[in-house]
Design a protein around this nucleic acid. Structure first.
Lengths: 241, 241
DNA sequence: CGACACCTTGAAGAGGTTCAAGAAATGTGG
DNA sequence: CCACATTTCTTGAACCTCTTCAAGGTGTCG
């Protein structure tokens, strides 16, 4: 076995328990067979490892199987911004298509495993399987809508609103994956949350403390228990124009 | 003529002077013919008119022919955020694909004309013409990268940096379209610029005044002449981590 | 020409940042 | 498995940027 972090055996979507999340495509038997062959390999990453980095030639999309990733954009003058957190069933790498190279870094925030989806193969198959074509378009459109909602958050919300929205979004996504609606373990640091939300880490920390003081949640380091989700909803929806 | 704002006569990309901007696709004669048939109609809009609005069923993308648009996301509690400004040759409407309905409003900021690109037709043709498929993917990927760069701007830049970046981006896009690199007429209000940049209109106004004081540009209402573009570059690239 | 929308500028105030110090958790090497 | 180094988190105080509120000016359109 030349490289223990790659496996090409029995790599197939057909019997993957994440299929409903990452490839929810209605199709006939033949088509499903094509789709099952989308994946070229799986790959394991250690915490802190880069899945891809900006400037790197683009050739694959990646589906997260296990673990947790962040994507980070870096500007020419060294600023950087976390643009997303990605968990099981989500697809990363779409940024690379336009210039045939990645425009951000994708970093594993804990030990992780991903499926490699060669873009060329995906494009080929989606020409033959309309349902896959639709799915790919929707993936990209969803990313656009999500990013525009982040622009709304970053452009118009105050610190506590941002953090509340962030937490609600996280638990909602975790809930879809069968985890608790109220309890979660943050996979990222205060600084990473801050970068994502356009805040400094101290501000994030203070907001956590404030929410805890107000009895909205319990916070012990990265362990968070949401006691009053409606309070969070109210915070997010309170203000506005 | 039932509706003077729609025309379906001689609507064809083949001899459109904007083709290089909006459909720069390499293909053989047959394929180009397919692509030329992408457009179903053209439509004229008056200043202030909506091209589409959030919640509206999605069925078309739109290519801007003339005029200038903004797209605006509105949150449930009435906040809104300008997510983009769009000029000749640019495609809008990609947000609508994921949920079969638009998630933002597109508003003409001046009298405008657009080409209607039925999404179903586009999807069909791009299954037969790989170059079009690639083009569509790149369009969407470009939008993702652009939005993520806006997240960087909103999350990490100060007011003067944001405005400088905005102006440089604007003149650069206008320059590609054959207009001056230094002179421009803003099509949007201070408030709209502010919404886009996550600032209040007063802040935008103050920053314009500051740039004018510093001799970087002349500002007379919406007429802007950039005297020292390098100063703007320096402002954008100054800080960082 | 008048009404309305848009822009500018000042002064006061708030929210978030910066700087700093210490505490808690995590990981590492012996 | 423990001790130590490192990273991460919390909290306080001073500061700064941007916002808010207010008033007046400028431009535009019917």
């Amino acid at each position: 076995m030349p490289c223990p972090n790659f496996s090409t055996l029995k790599v197939n979507c057909s019997n993957c328990n994440l299929r409903d999340l990452c490839m929810p495509v209605e199709a006939d038997i033949d088509e499903l067979e094509s789709i099952a062959g989308l994946i070229s390999a799986r790959r394991k990453l250690k915490r802190g490892e880069l899945l891809y980095s900006h400037g790197e030639p683009f050739s694959n999309l990646y589906a997260v199987r296990t673990g947790f990733f962040k994507t980070v954009v870096t500007s020419s003058d060294g600023r950087d911004q976390v643009t997303g957190f990605h968990m099981a069933g989500e697809i990363v790498g779409l940024d690379g298509i336009v210039d045939d190279q990645h425009s951000c870094d994708a970093v594993a925030l804990e030990d992780a495993e991903i499926c490699v989806l060669p873009y060329a193969r995906m494009a080929d198959i989606s020409r033959k399987v309309p349902a896959l074509q639709t799915h790919v378009h929707k993936l990209m459109s969803r990313e656009i809508v999500r990013d525009q909602n982040m622009m709304l958050l970053l452009g118009s919300m105050r610190a506590e609103e941002r953090l509340a929205a962030f937490l609600l979004n996280l638990v909602q996504r975790l809930h879809v994956r069968g985890l608790s609606q109220s309890e979660l373990v943050l996979r990222m640091t205060r600084e990473e949350i801050g970068s994502y939300l356009g805040l400094k880490l101290e501000t994030v920390s203070r907001m956590f403390s404030r929410f805890a003081d107000e009895g909205i949640m319990e916070v012990r380091q990265r362990h968070v228990r949401i006691i009053d989700p409606e309070a969070l909803e109210r915070i997010v929806n309170q203000s506005g124009a």
